[in-house]
Write a protein that binds this DNA or RNA. Structure first.
Lengths: 286, 286
DNA sequence: CCGTCCCATAAACATTCTGCATGGACAGGG
DNA sequence: CCCTGTCCATGCAGAATGTTTATGGGACGG
């Protein structure tokens, strides 16, 4: 059983097609067919069903896939880590984050990094929710993650604190000045799927419960940026990290201020470019 | 870069010798030399220094090793998972646990398993402390772990509760009847390296502090069984899980009883033999 | 200074992988 | 109903890769 066979298998599953996977892998389709067959012979049974349209995992394939994914990703990480340790100024650094962080915080980081280290390419992996990010990191998709998870990671440090601010409808009477959470009782809330879960309850539920009310949910969005856009359009109010809000949209701070730590973590100790990125990240936090 | 090259590399590091690694891998030494060299050529620099006696990791090697290990172990797990899913009654199931659990709890489990499923071989991986077990599981050494860690694992269930009992010197006046922790103030304690850390302090420190005293440490042992043997020999008292104590050694329960949950976990959902082992484990807990 | 241990190198041989050409199964359209 | 396009499997030759056997060189210890 070879790494290549596993890589081929993972790609076929992702592409849902032998032919497309062969293109992605830059090999001919017969070569790929052959390797998958060899892999199936090795493990002693079929890993996927060939359907007229696409493929389907067999129970064996389902059992095999997650481990194979880890193996393939880890091999790629090993490669990058070694090259980076050689002091290579060229290569790739894979960074994983939830969409809000990637869109709100990383642009400045990426800009500076690219300016000061051309040649070292940053590859971003974006996820909708903190849980997906955590899962992906455990599967080894990236060298480094930025976000609110990473509990139990081998290496993890606090980058700084993000401040949660409120986006109010345009012209709202409370706009500008600091507001107490309790002042926002009775409003329509725009909720976000990526809200972290604390003590078994979504973040905002918990905070509002402590402020003495239950938030009424108007909309649930997938991405934080969507929530901001909705709030800016007057659909309700949203409580989001300050970096998720574009310059043009006015925000309202909370009193007392609501902060939470932002972490970076990795499956192995920070080395090479991953370590070099840390100060860039810290500097990007207000 | 191939899986084999990474496997060879990991083995050389473990064996601290090309020649011994070649024997372990059942290949000749030149074949191994050749592959390591090819791997080093691939990543663009040396991964290890060849010393007159043994090898030493270069910084590149140090960066490469942990990822390579994950890749190699995950590939092996993928293999086993697929074979198991095929309904194979033969194969291997790798189980990881701390020594005390392996020695105290698993023998009965293994005995029954072997009786009812000959052909499916159990491979045990033993660790001195819960932290080492957690680390090893993240590196993918086993299909299943039994112990007190596993926070953040993809699959994790409670097997039951273990009871912590006290081993007193032979003929101690408190022997037999339930004792309160506070009654044990002023005794010499035999401490164990595998004591879990709760709230940043060793388990026993915390419990004794709550009972109003600071335990005086007589000895620190590596393994729980050593601690039990010492206590049984009259070197002091030890508080250990009941399953860690041999039949012949009398134990004294605590009042109120001191229990803690015992978990099993895995990096992926329980399937095949791993799932089949769960009831065996549950049944083994009193 | 010589023997031993350990790893590197060279060349022959064996294995494995790939690409090309081709064939069979299936679904949709005329 | 047949034709055609899509998709995956198979057979075979050439290329690439891995392994073995044989040999060489450097470090250490007596």
């Amino acid at each position: 059983m070879s790494l290549r066979q596993m890589e081929y298998f993972v790609t076929v599953v992702e592409a849902d097609s032998f032919t497309r996977a062969a293109e992605l892998l830059h090999v001919t389709q017969p070569a790929l067919s052959h390797q998958i067959k060899a892999l199936e012979r090795h493990v002693g049974g079929p890993l996927l069903e060939r359907l007229p349209r696409g493929v389907r995992l067999t129970p064996m394939g389902r059992a095999f896939l997650p481990h194979a994914e880890v193996a393939v990703r880890s091999a790629a990480q090993a490669d990058r880590a070694a090259r980076a340790a050689a002091g290579a100024q060229e290569g790739e650094l894979h960074v994983a984050a939830v969409h809000a962080v990637a869109a709100g915080l990383l642009p400045r980081v990426v800009a500076r990094w690219r300016r000061e280290r051309p040649g070292m390419e940053l590859v971003l992996h974006e996820y909708g929710r903190d849980e997906e990010l955590d899962d992906a990191m455990e599967r080894g998709v990236a060298d480094l993650a930025v976000g609110h998870g990473g509990a139990g990671a081998a290496a993890r440090t606090v980058l700084g604190e993000e401040e949660v601010v409120v986006v109010l409808p345009p012209g709202d009477r409370l706009a500008g000045g600091p507001v107490r959470l309790a002042d926002l009782a009775g409003r329509d809330w725009i909720r976000c799927a990526m809200e972290p879960v604390v003590e078994g309850r979504p973040f905002i539920d918990l905070a509002c419960a402590r402020a003495g009310f239950t938030p009424r949910t108007a909309v649930r969005t997938e991405h934080t940026s969507t929530a901001v856009a909705m709030a800016a359009a007057g659909a309700g109010i949203a409580a989001v990290p300050s970096y998720a809000v574009p310059e043009a949209v006015p925000t309202t701070p909370l009193t007392p201020p609501w902060r939470r730590p932002l972490h970076t973590w990795s499956r192995t100790p920070f080395t090479g470019p991953a370590a070099a990125l840390l100060p860039y990240l810290t500097a990007a936090l207000p």
